[in-house]
Design a protein around this nucleic acid. Structure first.
Lengths: 116, 116
DNA sequence: CAAACCTTGACACGCCCGTGTTAGGGTTAG
DNA sequence: CTAACCCTAACACGGGCGTGTCAAGGTTTG
């Protein structure tokens, strides 16, 4: 037992289903290394990351997609720059209470996630 | 004609449908001011922003949702910090070619958008 | 060698996003 | 005053996300 768990074992200690572990990997968020025969092997660091990921999502009401986008933002500098530039060119409206619809949506989503 | 367009006029010069202009507003991305009776009024800055938004989306294969999330990232410092912290705790794997599935997905999406 | 794992690939399904459209009702301009 | 706008709210719908499940086949272990 060389300090690494198979996908099924990792599933049990992290709460993510094996299916989701593969999905999370395909999103580039947590990528285990592989045994010579191709089995996924999750080390302590990956396991910790998977647990933290769960908190990150539920505490802020975001999804894997959002975290995936954040990943793109830090990998693709051009993308980050373009987004930054777009926000920078903000018109007047210096201080204001942000879009009610949007926030209500996000809050509801958050509440639902917490309730589940 | 005091240097501000109604939603229908703005629609014509930006290419966004009136429906989408309202949707974009609800996402907090471009918020026109209002006439005393509640009509949306788009000034030059907002019009420019709407056109740039279109480019931002198509050039990087992202959606309004992603830009909305970027907005949250810069408005909610706690969220930005949490995401940052999660990425910071990255395990080994110093240099590597990122998740093929994910990238292929993003690229296909991008291509589709360009083709459309 | 058989049971219990693992792999990738695909189908299925509920929910949300992006969008159009319609309904019911105010506002503005000729 | 009527036509042509505008508003919000809601239904509709195709496509993608998050997730389960199954199929067909390789690996590990007792």
């Amino acid at each position: 037992m060389p300090d690494a768990l198979t996908i099924h074992e990792a599933s049990e200690t992290t709460g993510w289903s094996p299916r989701m572990l593969r999905y999370i990997e395909s999103a580039g968020l947590v990528e285990p290394h592989r045994s010579p025969s191709g089995y996924r092997l999750y080390g302590p660091a990956e396991l910790q990351r998977l647990r933290t990921l769960r908190e990150l999502l539920s505490e802020h009401g975001i999804g894997l997609q959002e975290v995936g986008f954040a990943l793109r933002l830090r990998r693709e500098r051009e993308l980050a720059g373009a987004v930054e530039a777009w926000f920078e060119a903000e018109p007047e409206r210096p201080e204001h209470v942000p879009a009610t619809d949007w926030l209500r949506f996000e809050q509801e989503r958050h509440s639902k996630l917490l309730a589940a």
